[in-house]
Write a protein that binds this DNA or RNA. Structure first.
Lengths: 150, 150
DNA sequence: GGGAAAAAGTGGTTTCTAGTGGTTTTTTGT
DNA sequence: ACAAAAAACCACTAGAAACCACTTTTTCCC
């Protein structure tokens, strides 16, 4: 399973394609031959999630199985399943972002690709930096987190 | 495990590389053959954290395991994992700071490297001195700290 | 409905910049 | 004065970004 770390500034061309950075590309071609699934993020941050296909396949049944009499669960299903786009890196290591995902995450030219362990996140650069600046410490922490010593 | 103490004024070259001071370099090559992980600091001070790889590896699972339906936990994950850059000192004992980390910590030419026991901190010199001036002692202390006798 | 035009998607090539590695010179400390 | 380390410098390479040419699909008008 992948271990994606670090962030990369990349840009989208006029046709909506983004070139995956060489290091990430290598890892992707190893663990899933470049076969990935791109979808929308469900929490309040409008970014995209990029899963290696095997990782997505472990996740998908869990999402499908959620009790969908619950509003929050329905929301998660609609967002994640309804936006999921399986794709493959092209010969130059690029992917084409489907238009609905482009607009969901407000992607323009400048993007940031953020490693998050098993998956990656794709942000509009502007939104990423805005998020970095906003709200630092005023949220409730889970106990595991309060005990951390970094 | 490392025991880093003291501070060093160092500078970054035009390409974004910094030469680690000889003493620190020695300690790093002993405990991790120069293999380190550089990442962003999560608290309000915008500096970088430099971990010897083994020390980082004890930390990483704890961060990944945080419940990411929680806002504060997500923030920590995005900052620490999303900025983590594994690297190795080059033959001249230098490291290249990835551009996103350079801008996160506002690193220009003059930097300060601060020993913090198991890890090191890397600051913009300007910000380091500004922080020294601004920070006073009138904050709430945890009980373990109140019990200290310096 | 057929055809033309426009848009979107695909693939490849070229150019340029940022990263890399190494060397030399200067400074510092002993 | 000497040795070691830091800083400046230089040459080379690989990756990314811009560019260009071609194919397919959609749309709009006749």
């Amino acid at each position: 399973m992948g271990n994606f770390l670090g962030s990369h500034a990349i840009n989208m061309d006029a046709k909506g394609r983004v070139a995956i950075p060489a290091k990430v590309r290598e890892e992707l071609s190893q663990i899933c031959s470049g076969r990935i699934v791109l979808t929308a993020n469900a929490d309040e941050e409008r970014c995209l999630l990029l899963y290696p296909e095997p990782e997505w396949e472990t996740l998908r049944p869990k999402i499908e199985a959620l009790p969908n009499m619950n509003r929050a669960a329905r929301r998660l299903q609609r967002l994640l399943l309804g936006n999921a786009a399986p794709m493959e890196l092209d010969s130059a290591g690029r992917i084409l972002i489907p238009p609905p995902l482009r607009s969901y995450a407000h992607l323009e030219k400048k993007l940031m690709l953020i490693g998050q362990g098993k998956k990656l996140e794709l942000w509009s650069e502007e939104r990423w930096y805005a998020w970095l600046d906003e709200s630092s410490g005023d949220d409730e922490m889970p106990p595991e987190m309060e005990a951390l010593s970094l």
